[in-house]
Simulated assay, not measured.
Amino acid sequence: MTLLSITDLTARYGDFQALFGVDIQLEPGETIAIIGANGAGKTTLMRAITGIVPPSGGSIRLQDRDLTRAPAPEILKAGIAMVPEGRRLFPSLTVEENLLIGGQKRQGNGFWTLARIHELFPILAERRHSPATALSGGQQQMVAIGRALMSNPEVLLCDELSLGLAPVVIKEIYASFPMIRQSGTAIIVVEQDIGQAMKVADRLYCMMEGRITLSGRPGDLSREAIHDAYFGVSHA
């Protein structure tokens, strides 16, 4: 059974239509990457999946459950958690307190506990009593990932994980993906870095102006096809 099914999804900001008939399928244990330039609709798609932006049409189903019109807290409780662009940590709380907040909507006695987050990112155990915003950008991203995992989601949405981070830090963060997948969590990652997206994804979706312009397995897609879909180049 498909884990997450997004069908003919549309979304609007007032009179402005941001998504046009988006179709995406996520299978259990899979990682898919969504690429596209700024303004392509990637973040709007993430916000629509999590209920922050109510869809104006289409459907979002988690297995057999329709979440299309569900409010954001219900979607989180159902098993979809997001690592937002910019991390959005609570500056007045410590690293550990930020992580524990993520566990307040825990789905039963799942895999992810504070100890497992510390196993995934050992630096967070060392810095557990530090204010979250006193950490480096990469370490803050680890806190944001850990906070989302503490709810034991079936689907983890990661919006622009590598934005503003050094290559060595990006590599360290993406090295956490195998353990996350082994826990039973599927991943959707929004990424502007095409090369990085192709390294981690089982399947790739390219967006432009609110539409899916290309999809497939990275090994089946040529660099030229991805470039053309990314920038809207036509050879007709």
Rank of each mutant, 00 (worst) to 15 (best):
83 V>Q: 00
79 G>S: 01
124 L>E: 03
124 L>Y: 04
136 S>M: 06
161 L>C: 01
163 L>Q: 10
161 L>R: 03
165 L>W: 06
108 G>F: 09
189 V>R: 12
141 Q>Y: 01
85 E>K: 10
85 E>F: 12
123 I>C: 04
171 K>S: 11
127 R>A: 10
19 L>N: 05
53 V>N: 14
217 R>I: 00
1 M>Y: 08
158 C>M: 13
75 I>K: 13
96 E>N: 06
9 L>N: 10
209 E>R: 13
41 G>L: 02
143 V>S: 00
115 A>G: 09
202 D>V: 11
50 T>I: 15
160 E>W: 02
42 K>Y: 04
212 I>W: 02
112 W>F: 11
106 R>S: 02
116 R>Y: 01
157 L>I: 08
214 L>R: 07
191 E>A: 03
74 E>G: 02
98 N>L: 07
113 T>H: 11
132 A>M: 04
109 N>M: 08
63 Q>L: 09
142 M>N: 01
51 G>S: 05
107 Q>C: 03
20 F>Y: 12
227 H>A: 10
147 R>G: 00
105 K>E: 04
80 I>W: 10
25 Q>M: 07
135 L>H: 08
20 F>D: 02
143 V>I: 06
61 R>C: 09
137 G>F: 15
23 D>R: 11
199 K>V: 08
68 T>E: 14
85 E>P: 02
176 S>D: 00
118 H>E: 07
25 Q>L: 14
131 P>M: 13
146 G>I: 00
157 L>V: 05
37 A>L: 13
189 V>Q: 12
53 V>Y: 15
189 V>H: 08
116 R>N: 01
103 G>V: 04
235 H>T: 13
82 M>N: 07
90 F>Q: 12
32 I>S: 11
147 R>A: 00
202 D>F: 14
166 A>K: 06
73 P>Y: 14
33 A>L: 11
104 Q>C: 05
108 G>A: 07
228 D>S: 12
181 R>Q: 04
21 G>L: 06
206 C>P: 05
52 I>T: 08
116 R>H: 09
221 L>A: 02
151 S>K: 04
3 L>I: 06
198 M>C: 10
210 G>F: 11
73 P>T: 11
144 A>W: 00
228 D>I: 09
